[in-house]
Write a protein that binds this DNA or RNA. Structure first.
Lengths: 207, 207
DNA sequence: TTCTTAAATTTTGTATACAATGCAGACAAT
DNA sequence: ATTGTCTGCATTGTATACAAAATTTAAGAA
């Protein structure tokens, strides 16, 4: 990975990496001095990196954020609201080039039914392509933040991949192709609600 | 104003204040040393305050953010999405106590038809009360952020208060009272879209 | 033992010095 | 006149020292 330029950027990338991989587990205290030494910079850039992660929601009061089920739900609901809207926009305005990309993503995910890392990547790609159709950076950004938080959980979920997920993607893609916003929106909502319930079910198993 | 506690909090409050009052105009460069001296703290807390404001969207690359019309639109659309949802939730679930508060806010705004500062306050209150009904801190927070950005503009707009605004509030309130989510959502959407267009029209006058 | 409180410690907050970077204007070369 | 690059200045980035606050540990009393 190319962790560019400034010490702060390096610190940010490294800490973030540790958090999302689960290497720094939820609840772990982030001690500036320790991290500074570990990364090989001074406390100053580490501080700023932590602040950034705090704003981003991955860190809460110097601890790695550990979302409870309520918080997971809240983030998911925010995401659903935007993505349903995005699906409607996509069905209305998506140009053919983009539609091709979307179909490609669906096809690819179906092709690699066993490699779960690859499925995760294509899954994310599918959703990103749809969210892009809002043409609204604020929404795109918000979804991205929600995904980060949700991912703190779904590492576990990803492994137990949910049945039906790929078919639902295909169905949404079809509704967009048919230029049916109502249907696309409805299918997206059902899809994400199912994802949420599945995720919650697994999380509750773990606790 | 009570600017409590740490130097960083003081710096944050003071700088934010200057920005939202328009005292620091859009595009102005924020120089750490100058601000530090002005506020009476060292550069360190000022830096962190600026970073925070950057995350919040009020500052962009050390300059006071000056949203263009596209950006204003984007923020507004995000807000609309959430508030329409909130209105639907409110119509479905709002308890009587909260409904009373809402009615009170509408009444009060109508009572002070001349004092524009007071109208702004009651206007905000009306929307906040509805957004609260999402019961979703993530959404509440997001709307609050959108409002900050929008307010960078609407200082101008506020002065030319839009006709019909209060009646629309009353109508939304009524739809909620009638427990009609579809209507409440639709009215809220129309209301905010009208606000957006009005705001854009004024902004374009200014340029 | 368990609870309180005080001391010790760890950790964060703040100031400040110095280094690196970027940027504006001056001057030279074409 | 245009381009280039050099110089000095303004600003940000980083490290570090010290102060304040928070947290842990230990000791003593109920």
């Amino acid at each position: 990975m190319r962790t560019g330029g400034t010490a702060q950027a390096i610190a940010y990338e490294k800490i973030r990496e540790q958090i999302v991989t689960g290497n720094y587990p939820g609840g772990m205290k982030l001690i500036e001095e320790r991290l500074a030494e570990e990364i090989g910079v001074s406390r100053t850039p580490v501080r700023e990196a932590i602040r950034r992660l705090e704003q981003e929601g991955l860190v809460r009061r110097k601890k790695v954020f550990k979302p409870g089920t309520k918080e997971l739900r809240d983030h998911f609901k925010m995401r659903i609201l935007i993505e349903v809207h995005a699906a409607q926009m996509a069905a209305t305005y998506m140009i053919d080039d983009h539609l091709e990309e979307l179909k490609e993503a669906v096809r690819k995910a179906q092709a690699v039914r066993d490699d779960s890392a690859e499925i995760v990547r294509e899954n994310k790609r599918f959703h990103d392509l749809i969210v892009r159709e809002t043409r609204n950076p604020v929404m795109i950004d918000t979804v991205s933040r929600m995904q980060s938080i949700i991912y703190l959980f779904s590492r576990a979920v990803v492994i137990n991949k949910r049945p039906g997920l790929l078919d639902e993607h295909a169905a949404i893609c079809e509704a967009i192709t048919e230029r049916d916003p109502e249907k696309a929106g409805r299918l997206m909502e059902e899809h994400l609600e199912a994802d949420l319930e599945f995720t919650l079910a697994i999380v509750e198993l773990e606790e």
